[in-house]
Amino acid sequence: MELILDVVIDALIDSLKILPFLFITYLIMEYLEHKTAEFTSGVVEKTEHFGPLWGGLIGAFPQCGFSAAASNLYAGRVITLGTLIAIYLSTSDEMIPLFISEQVPIKTMIQVLAIKALIGILAGFVIDFVVHAYHKAHNKSINDPVRISSLCEKEHCHCDDDESEGLFGIVKSAFVHTFHIFVFVLILTLVLNLVIELIGEDKVALLLKTSPVISHILAGLVGLIPNCAASVIITELYLDQMITLGTMMSGLLVGAGIGLLVLFRVNDNKKENINIALLLFFIGTVIGLLIDLIGITI
């Protein structure tokens, strides 16, 4: 009973952390949908070229809600795939609080954040370049149509009915979206926390201390867990000098907080979602392995 209570409390805390990010994101998206259709198209034009840069920089801030916000923006086609991946790769969530609690030098923290942000930015630009080249080669439209309204239809929030209500309608629609996603995240977080508690963090840690290549793959798989606990385990192992910098980076680069969880909820194209998760895993683990092969240390 005590275990279940702890799991419920932890799940509530983790889920409540993302509420402000979700609500603010939906407010912005609802405003774009209700008031500025032309401006929304302009946003797509701008992020097509500079999105990965801003995504990589903003994603580096120590929070796990921005990746959830990015998933919603991508599902609405307000940002590009490259921008989404840049944000996922640079997201830091619980790493910085742990570094601070362990009195890790500020220089080290900045270096780790800089590496994650740089990798995210470079990967984002490369991905957008490849996507644009592919579309051009196949005579397809480079820009996906902005489809924020499709999110409204999926959530059955009747946003169009609220247009005449002005600001109140925008706030109401944003609240409905936020509530639906919050409930979804809370339920799955409860399940994930329970599984982690039953298996034991020590067993997960043991898996990461096997052979070098396997440790990177396992770290990436742990990073795919849509829960802040993944970054906690990986960061603690690095601080205890049980894994290398590259192995830690494999897990932290792949780890996008609950971003992937939200993506699978709000983006209808499940095949695309799976491909995004696989792309994130591939980039994170390969870069982490390269860091160790080159011998980078901080």
Rank of each mutant, 00 (worst) to 15 (best):
W54F: 12
G55I: 09
G56E: 04
G56S: 04
I58Q: 04
G59K: 00
F61K: 10
Q63W: 13
Q63D: 12
G65V: 14
G65M: 14
F66G: 10
F66H: 07
A68Y: 10
A69Y: 02
S71E: 04
S71Q: 02
L73P: 00
A75T: 09
A75N: 11
I79Y: 01
I79G: 02
G82Q: 10
I85S: 05
I87P: 00
T91S: 15
T91I: 11
T91R: 06
T91V: 06
E94A: 14
I96L: 15
L98S: 15
F99L: 15
I100Q: 11
I100A: 14
E102Y: 14
Q103D: 03
V104G: 07
P105V: 04
P105T: 03
P105I: 07
K107P: 00
K107V: 13
T108A: 03
M109S: 15
M109N: 00
V112A: 08
L113P: 13
I115R: 10
L118G: 07
G120W: 03
L122P: 09
A123P: 09
I127R: 03
D128A: 09
V130G: 00
V130T: 11
H132W: 03
A133L: 13
Y134W: 11
H135Q: 14
K140V: 09
K140L: 04
K140G: 06
S141F: 06
I142V: 07
N143D: 12
D144W: 01
P145S: 15
V146Y: 13
I148Y: 15
S149H: 14
S150W: 08
